[in-house]
Amino acid sequence: MNQQFKVHLALFSVALIYGANYSIAKTVMPEYVKPFGLIVIRVVSAAVFFGFLSRFVIKEKIVGKADNFRSVLCGLFGVAINQLFFFGGLNLTSPIHASLIMVITPVIVLLLSAVLLKAPIRWLSTLGIFIAGTGAMLLIYGGGKQDQNSSLLGDIYILLNAASYGVYLVLVAPLMQRYKAITVVSRIFLVGAVLVIPFGYEQVLAPDWQSLPVQVWLSIIFMVVGVTILAYLLNAWALRYATPTLLGAYIYLQPVLAIFIAVAAGKDVFTLEKGLYALLIFIGVFLVSRK
């Protein structure tokens, strides 16, 4: 197995894991575990795992007031706010709506970079922002009216989740340049765990865990081990060899896989209207991401 194939396999596996997460999470919440309870389980598990790696394997610490404060902000936007809005939104809306709205993240990153970092915006990117934003708004306000599985509030939560993750990506970049990825992520998840526990600890205690079906247990394990830990490790390894263009291509693949899985599992229905709105989002993000 050559190196190029391994990189593609890793990136495809990450896209498949993220794509499946939209439908798998819906099998657990809200019937068996409420969304904030799932967040606590996922974030605390990740904090323990990456904290162990950071302390006993990497053995590196974040130093200085500025970097420590930045890491707290990353935990706030990249884990706490991000996850609360994502699972809260996914609980209310459909897997297809959530996966398509999340694609707009690069557009938000560009806008935030322009505001926070004074980065210039090319005219082609401006056009992409307008097209992607139009597609997202049509999906939220137009598609939701005819879709019983989605709600306006849930779509807005997903959009706020994407915005929060965009803030995180801008904030975390300097830390990733100065420290190893595991060091940064372990701190971020530690901060995130402290912040999300007050929101979801009661929901963790509420279910009758002994009576949960095997399928639900497997879904929870998938979200903890697959989505939180394995996907991150595969992505971190692939980033050492993949080009930005290749990463962009696999970002587009995530909602496509999410749609196939949601439809196959009977969790959602894909319509021509959603397809047209998705096309606008894809075109807009492509123009924004294209160099």
Score class of each variant (00 low, 15 high):
140 I>F: 02
254 Q>M: 14
221 I>T: 11
268 D>M: 12
49 F>I: 13
205 L>I: 15
12 F>I: 08
105 T>W: 05
162 A>H: 03
185 V>I: 15
10 A>D: 09
208 D>G: 02
273 E>K: 13
112 L>A: 00
198 P>D: 13
224 V>E: 07
248 G>V: 01
200 G>S: 06
1 M>D: 09
267 K>H: 14
78 G>I: 03
71 S>T: 10
104 I>A: 07
153 L>K: 09
214 V>K: 11
144 G>W: 06
66 A>Q: 14
88 G>Y: 06
228 T>W: 04
257 L>T: 08
284 G>E: 06
19 G>D: 08
207 P>V: 07
146 Q>T: 15
186 S>G: 05
134 T>A: 09
30 P>G: 06
11 L>Y: 03
277 Y>Q: 12
124 L>I: 10
47 A>M: 10
62 I>F: 11
286 F>A: 15
185 V>H: 03
113 S>A: 14
251 I>G: 10
102 M>L: 11
137 M>H: 02
11 L>I: 02
11 L>R: 00
222 F>R: 05
123 W>D: 11
35 P>A: 02
216 V>M: 01
89 G>E: 06
149 N>W: 01
54 S>E: 05
57 V>S: 04
61 K>R: 14
244 P>V: 11
239 L>F: 11
22 Y>D: 07
180 K>R: 15
275 G>H: 09
84 L>E: 04
82 N>Q: 12
118 K>E: 11
253 L>D: 02
275 G>Y: 07
30 P>R: 01
91 N>C: 11
274 K>G: 03
224 V>Q: 06
132 A>H: 03
82 N>S: 08
123 W>R: 14
216 V>Q: 02
235 N>Q: 14
51 G>M: 07
168 Y>I: 04
163 A>H: 03
135 G>A: 08
215 Q>T: 07
185 V>W: 01
